[in-house]
Simulated assay, not measured.
Amino acid sequence: MTDTPETDGRHPADVVTTMIEACLARAATWPAWDGVPRPVDDRVYTPHKAVRRITDHLIDHLAEIEARLAGVPTIPDHWHASAITTAADLAPFTAEDLDEARSRLSRLAQLYELRLRAAGPAALDRRDGDAWSPRQIAFHLEGSLYYADALGFLR
């Protein structure tokens, strides 16, 4: 892996749960989305695509952390990531979609909270070769706010 994430004194569980809370704060305004995808860098984003990317990123790295802590090889992900925009990504974002996103992301936040708090400092900082440690992965996940910021707070 490249670009090793910087870490600081925050607990990695706090880093992930705070990021998810920030994403959900933005998502709370997305039922106001006008249906026009937002260009950011070389991609476009919609509320559904942002939620999909945040969720996929969290699932991918949770699987990596679990495998690493269990001492087994990780399974590489094969997500299309933000390189594609699906028909489902273009659908209106309703109050029901927001409720689904809250449920999904809140449960993932709890999984990270439980897993990262249960791991001791040695496990959080253990690296396998050039791979990031679970602590570094958590700090990398903070960057998932990028997907929510692609839409930001809508009126």
Score class of each variant (00 low, 15 high):
residue 26 R to Q: 15
residue 26 R to E: 14
residue 26 R to H: 14
residue 27 A to T: 06
residue 27 A to W: 04
residue 27 A to L: 09
residue 28 A to S: 13
residue 28 A to V: 02
residue 28 A to L: 03
residue 28 A to C: 05
residue 29 T to G: 00
residue 29 T to C: 02
residue 29 T to Y: 02
residue 29 T to F: 04
residue 29 T to S: 15
residue 30 W to Q: 01
residue 30 W to G: 11
residue 30 W to A: 03
residue 30 W to E: 01
residue 30 W to P: 07
residue 31 P to E: 10
residue 31 P to C: 04
residue 31 P to M: 06
residue 31 P to T: 01
residue 32 A to D: 14
residue 32 A to C: 10
residue 32 A to N: 15
residue 32 A to T: 15
residue 33 W to L: 12
residue 34 D to S: 14
residue 34 D to W: 13
residue 34 D to F: 11
residue 34 D to P: 10
residue 34 D to M: 12
residue 35 G to D: 09
residue 35 G to W: 04
residue 35 G to Y: 06
residue 35 G to F: 15
residue 35 G to I: 15
residue 36 V to W: 13
residue 36 V to P: 11
residue 36 V to C: 10
residue 36 V to A: 15
residue 37 P to H: 07
residue 37 P to Y: 09
residue 37 P to R: 05
residue 37 P to K: 04
residue 38 R to N: 05
residue 38 R to P: 05
residue 38 R to W: 02
residue 38 R to T: 14
residue 38 R to H: 13
residue 39 P to V: 07
residue 39 P to R: 14
residue 39 P to E: 12
residue 39 P to T: 11
residue 39 P to W: 10
residue 40 V to H: 10
residue 40 V to M: 11
residue 40 V to C: 04
residue 41 D to S: 08
residue 41 D to L: 15
residue 41 D to G: 08
residue 42 D to I: 13
residue 42 D to W: 04
residue 42 D to S: 00
residue 42 D to G: 10
residue 43 R to I: 00
residue 43 R to G: 00
residue 44 V to N: 03
residue 44 V to S: 12
residue 44 V to W: 03
residue 44 V to G: 04
residue 45 Y to N: 07
residue 45 Y to C: 06
residue 45 Y to Q: 01
residue 45 Y to V: 03
residue 46 T to D: 02
residue 46 T to W: 07
residue 47 P to C: 12
residue 47 P to G: 11
residue 47 P to W: 08
residue 48 H to K: 12
residue 49 K to G: 07
residue 49 K to S: 09
residue 49 K to H: 09
residue 49 K to Q: 08
residue 49 K to T: 04
residue 50 A to S: 15
residue 50 A to G: 12
residue 50 A to Y: 08
residue 50 A to N: 12
residue 51 V to M: 12
residue 51 V to P: 09
residue 52 R to W: 01
residue 52 R to T: 02
residue 53 R to M: 14
residue 53 R to S: 12
residue 53 R to W: 01
residue 53 R to K: 10
residue 53 R to Y: 01
residue 54 I to N: 01
residue 54 I to K: 02
residue 55 T to S: 14
residue 55 T to I: 01
residue 55 T to Y: 07
residue 57 H to D: 09
residue 57 H to Y: 03
residue 58 L to S: 04
residue 58 L to H: 04
residue 59 I to G: 06
residue 59 I to Y: 01
residue 59 I to L: 03
residue 59 I to N: 09
residue 59 I to D: 09
residue 60 D to P: 00
residue 60 D to M: 12
residue 60 D to E: 13
residue 60 D to K: 08
residue 60 D to F: 05
residue 60 D to A: 06
residue 61 H to R: 11
residue 61 H to T: 05
residue 61 H to D: 11
residue 61 H to G: 02
residue 61 H to A: 06
residue 62 L to W: 02
residue 62 L to C: 03
residue 62 L to A: 12
residue 62 L to S: 06
residue 62 L to Y: 15
residue 63 A to T: 05
residue 63 A to P: 00
residue 63 A to E: 00
residue 63 A to K: 08
residue 64 E to M: 02
residue 64 E to N: 11
residue 65 I to V: 15
residue 66 E to Y: 13
residue 66 E to G: 03
residue 67 A to D: 14
residue 67 A to T: 02
residue 68 R to W: 01
residue 68 R to C: 08
residue 68 R to F: 00
residue 69 L to R: 10
residue 69 L to P: 06
residue 69 L to F: 05
residue 69 L to D: 11
residue 69 L to H: 10
